[in-house]
Design a protein around this nucleic acid. Sequence first.
DNA 1: CGGACCTTTGAAGACATTCAAGGCCTGTGG
DNA 2: CCACAGGCCTTGAATGTCTTCAAAGGTCCG
Lengths: 251, 251
Amino acid sequence: MDTIVKTIHVGFAKPFGCHSCRMNKLCIPLALGSDELDKLDQLNALVQRKNPLQPRDGVFFSGDPFTSIYAVRSGSIKSFCIDTDGREQVTGFYLPGEIFGWDGLANDHYQNTAIALETTSVCEIPYDQLDKLGSAIPSIKKYVMKLISHELNADQRLIALLAGKSAHQKLASLLLSISDRLVVQGLSPRRLWLPMSRGEISNYLGMTVETVSRALSHFQRNNYLHVNKKDIEILDKQALRSLLISSDDTE
Amino acid sequence: MDTIVKTIHVGFAKPFGCHSCRMNKLCIPLALGSDELDKLDQLNALVQRKNPLQPRDGVFFSGDPFTSIYAVRSGSIKSFCIDTDGREQVTGFYLPGEIFGWDGLANDHYQNTAIALETTSVCEIPYDQLDKLGSAIPSIKKYVMKLISHELNADQRLIALLAGKSAHQKLASLLLSISDRLVVQGLSPRRLWLPMSRGEISNYLGMTVETVSRALSHFQRNNYLHVNKKDIEILDKQALRSLLISSDDTE
DNA sequence: CGGACCTTTGAAGACATTCAAGGCCTGTGG
DNA sequence: CCACAGGCCTTGAATGTCTTCAAAGGTCCG
């Protein structure tokens, strides 16, 4: 049987620094037999484009029944949960092509809340239908498993970052991660626009707003970056990278 | 069709403080039609008991091809990965009844290394067979998805802990988590024996050995705990809990 | 223009780390 | 059996990083 490679436009990439775990295509690559191609069209039919979201609009809220996963088409999403003590904890930023919403699978209710950081459009992919389709098409099933598992790996990378790295290292890691993810979108890895506030960055990285601000200033003084509010230009990517591989944090 | 609830002895619980996400049974509960019961026997047949592991023995190593997930029968397992800078990062501790090894799913290779902390026996569950069985029995498939998703939620709880909590809070959280997980095993929630070293605890929680030691001493001085090396007795669980819900960290 | 919010910067302070030393336990070899 | 070496754990003191507190500048939007 001859196989045909077809792609559909549900993007995919990983939140946070997933050099090893991210698939390097924006679309879902599937090797399908001809008998499966019609099934694939069903998958395309699954994907529901939603109305554009305004900044601070929610996609789903903590406690909502789990129905779907979502893919960012344009804009950006942040997901966060409320801690035992009522504190908000940002758990992820999602850029175009990335998928979020898996956290609801465990309890049939979303644990996180997902909101738009800017004007954003997302695709909704109803999980029960995706699941059904996965049963019919093994390659889709396998792909879904990989998507979840990638999220797992991304979380573990974040854990390693939070547990073992300094403020400078954390911030450098986030910037490099975003840079890499822009490349996946076909954009420049040097110029980036941060859709999230300093406060959201600091929360995500387990530090304070002031420390984030100071770290950015520090990087700018050392000509690692050019910072203009949310516009960042990476001037010396190698310097940022070297922060991560050694504990050498010298000026 | 009448359904029969049957359980098999692959334990299950969550690493780390999963009050909300952990199923409160040690076994896999499945509601099955009579036609599915024979399939269930196949699942039982899947589970391969392995020879006991000695302390420091590995179950799998980072880079090994992903073949199976594992359940702890007795003893305990730690999993860790090597960071970009060569630093070891502990990503989880697994007690009897808990399942580990999902991280290999994404890349068909394990990202973490899993080793025994003490004399330990584990069950091996070949993933391809589990997957096949999941295709035949929807309830098993659903359960597998939930297992992975639970791991995801557990990681996110750890992220919140690492990002937002003080040393005392982190340690209290770990102790309470272990206590809760002992209850699942039918053991006392007050007396616990830590299978891991202070160094492994500190690495997991993103702090230094000295800080862990000082925090334990502090808890003992305040009669929250009685500490005797790896033997811990929880004297005032409420005090530990209250550390987590407020930032009140007073003597 | 005014106000709210976000960001930056400074200075003081706190918490955790680092450096250092000693104690305890275990296993090994004399 | 005792001595000794090597881990692991604890404790103290000094240092440092990050936080907290405080204030001012900037931007956006009514």
